[in-house]
Design a protein around this nucleic acid. Structure first.
Length: 437
DNA sequence: TCTGGGGTCCTAGGACCC
DNA sequence: TCTGGGGTCCTAGGACCC
C-alpha cells in the first residue's frame, strides 16, 4: 500500500518574513493582500488575537494597533522563491512529489511504506526547517483526502508534534468522528450546509453515506471524496502540472481610474503580464476576455466583460494588447470610477499545434516568437519590467498600494540581506555579490 | 477613507449532427 | 393508438480549492 504525505508550510507568508527578520518570532505578524486591502496570512499569535482570515484591514485596524501587530504587504517574489526552495528540499525524500500550491506538496511513498513513518515525517520537518527556515506540518494517510485531513489535525490537535499519522484504521475512524464535515477537502460551505440538513455532521458520517445518494447530490466529485475517506485512493498524485487552460490577470487599482486612456494602460499591462505566463508554458491563446468594474461597495455600480476572438492564436504581447484594447473600447462607459480590470486568456494550446488560416498569411511566426523570447530574456536577467511596452503607461499611478513590502531578499541583487558578523564587520552587498560570483 | 487574486471541474440544457 | 437512437459541442452557472 502506498502512503501519501501532505506537507504544508505553517503560516507560510508570515514564516517567509520571519526567516529574514528573526526578531518577529513569537510576535503577532500579518501579511496583507494586494492593495493592502485584507489580511491573507497570520502568525499564530495574530490568530490568537482574533484577527480572522480575509478580514478587511480597516475593520481590524484597532486590533493591529493595540497589539502592535507587525504588518507586511504581500511580497510574492520572496514567497515564490522560498516556496521553490521548500519544494526542492522535499524532493530529496521521494521522487514522487506533487506541488499542490505555493505552500503545500503531496508526497507519495510507494510499495512497502517506510517502517517508521512518524520518524520519517520528523526528519522531513527538521530538514526543511534547517535548509529553508520554514516550519512545516505533515499529515500521513492512505489517500490524499485523508492526508489533507491528517495535516489539519497536525496543525491543531497535534500541534506540538506537527505530525499526524492516519494510516492506522482505528486511529483514522477516531479522528474522522471528531472532524466536522465542512473541514473535509472538497466540502465547501454549500455542501456542508446541505449535509447538515440531512443529518451528516462529521467526516465519519459522510464516509458512510450511501454511494447513490452521494452521487446524486454531490456529483462524482463527492463520490470520490467519500471513497477517499474510506481509504480507497481515487485522486492520483499529479507530478507534472497540466498546462493552464486559462490565464488571468485581474487586480484592483491603487486609486480609481476614469479615463479610457488610463484604463487602456491598465489593460495593456495586464495583457502583457498574462502573455508572459502564456509563453512560459509554451502556449498560444486564441481568445481573450476583458473586464472592468467599479467598486462593489459603492453606487453607482457598473461592471462588464467581453470576449474577443483573436485573428489567430498568438503569444505575442503586442497582438494580445491590441485585442485587449479592442475589447475595452466595447465595454467602456464614460462617467464611472473604475476600480478593477482584468484580462483572461482562453482557448490555450501548445504553440506548435496551432491551426493556420487558409485566407491569411499572418500568424504567430518565427520572427514574433524570437522577438518575444528576447524581451523575456532581458526581463529575466535584468529584472521584471526592465523592458516593457509603452502601451502599459509610464507613470502608472493606478498601480497597487504596497506600503509595507519587505525587500525581495532572494531574487534581487540590489535587495540582498546585509549580514553583520560578530566583531562588528559588515558584509555589505558588494562583498556578498563577490562571494556568490 | 479603506474590502484579494487565480484557478479547476462538473452538470444541465440547447443546438446540432448522422 | 402509434412518434428512434446515439452522439458532440458550447455556454452558463455552481461548487470547490489555496
Amino acid at each position: 500500500m502506498a502512503v501519501f504525505a501532505l506537507v504544508d508550510c505553517n503560516n507560510f507568508y508570515v514564516s517567509c518574513e520571519r526567516v529574514f527578520a528573526p526578531a518577529l518570532a513569537g510576535r503577532p505578524v500579518v501579511v496583507l493582500s494586494n492593495n493592502d486591502g485584507r489580511v491573507v496570512a497570520r502568525s499564530q499569535e495574530a490568530k490568537d488575537l482574533g484577527i480572522d482570515m480575509g478580514v478587511p484591514v480597516f475593520k481590524c485596524r484597532h486590533l493591529l494597533a493595540r497589539h502592535q501587530v507587525q504588518v507586511y504587504s504581500s511580497n510574492y517574489a520572496l514567497y515564490g522563491d522560498m516556496s521553490r526552495r521548500v519544494m526542492e528540499s522535499l524532493k530529496a525524500f521521494t521522487p514522487e512529489v506533487e506541488v499542490y500550491s505555493i505552500d503545500e506538496s503531496f508526497l507519495r511513498f510507494a510499495g512497502a511504506p517506510p517502517r517508521d513513518l512518524a520518524g520519517l515525517a520528523q526528519d522531513i520537518r527538521r530538514r526543511v526547517r534547517s535548509w529553508t527556515g520554514i516550519p512545516v506540518s505533515i499529515g500521513l494517510a492512505a489517500t490524499k483526502t485523508l492526508a489533507k485531513l491528517a495535516n489539519k489535525v497536525a496543525k491543531t490537535i497535534s500541534r506540538a508534534e506537527g505530525v499526524c499519522n492516519l494510516v492506522d484504521q482505528r486511529r483514522r475512524e477516531e479522528v474522522l468522528d471528531r472532524v466536522e464535515v465542512g473541514e473535509v477537502w472538497g466540502i465547501g460551505p454549500r455542501y456542508s450546509a446541505f449535509l447538515h440538513r440531512h443529518g451528516i455532521r462529521t467526516a465519519r458520517q459522510l464516509s458512510r453515506a450511501p454511494d447513490a445518494w452521494v452521487c446524486r447530490h454531490l456529483t462524482v466529485v463527492g463520490q470520490r471524496i467519500v471513497w477517499e475517506l474510506r481509504g480507497i485512493s481515487c485522486i492520483p498524485l499529479e507530478q507534472v502540472p497540466a498546462p493552464k487552460k486559462a490565464i488571468a490577470r485581474s487586480r484592483a487599482f491603487g486609486r480609481p481610474v476614469r479615463a479610457l486612456d488610463e484604463l487602456g494602460e491598465v489593460v495593456a499591462t495586464y495583457a502583457a503580464a498574462a502573455a508572459r505566463t502564456l509563453r512560459q508554458q509554451g502556449s498560444v491563446a486564441a481568445c481573450l476576455q476583458v473586464s472592468v468594474e467599479t467598486s462593489r461597495f459603492k453606487e453607482p455600480y457598473y461592471g462588464r466583460a467581453v470576449t474577443v476572438r483573436l485573428p489567430f492564436s498568438t503569444a505575442s504581447t503586442p497582438e494580445l494588447i491590441c485585442g485587449a484594447r479592442r475589447g475595452l473600447e466595447r465595454i467602456f462607459r464614460k462617467g464611472y470610477a473604475y476600480e478593477r480590470a482584468g484580462v483572461l486568456l482562453t482557448e490555450i494550446a501548445p504553440h506548435d499545434t496551432v491551426q493556420l488560416d487558409l485566407f491569411s498569411s499572418e500568424f504567430y511566426d518565427e520572427r514574433k516568437r524570437k522577438l518575444m523570447a528576447v524581451v523575456d530574456e532581458i526581463n529575466t536577467r535584468r529584472g521584471r519590467d526592465a523592458i516593457r511596452f509603452a502601451a502599459g503607461g509610464l507613470e502608472r499611478q493606478w498601480r497597487m498600494r504596497q506600503a509595507h513590502r519587505s525587500p525581495r531578499f532572494t531574487t534581487r541583487w540590489d535587495e540582498l540581506p546585509v549580514v553583520r558578523v560578530a566583531g562588528g564587520a559588515a558584509w555589505d552587498q558588494a562583498v556578498i555579490s563577490a562571494v556568490l560570483h
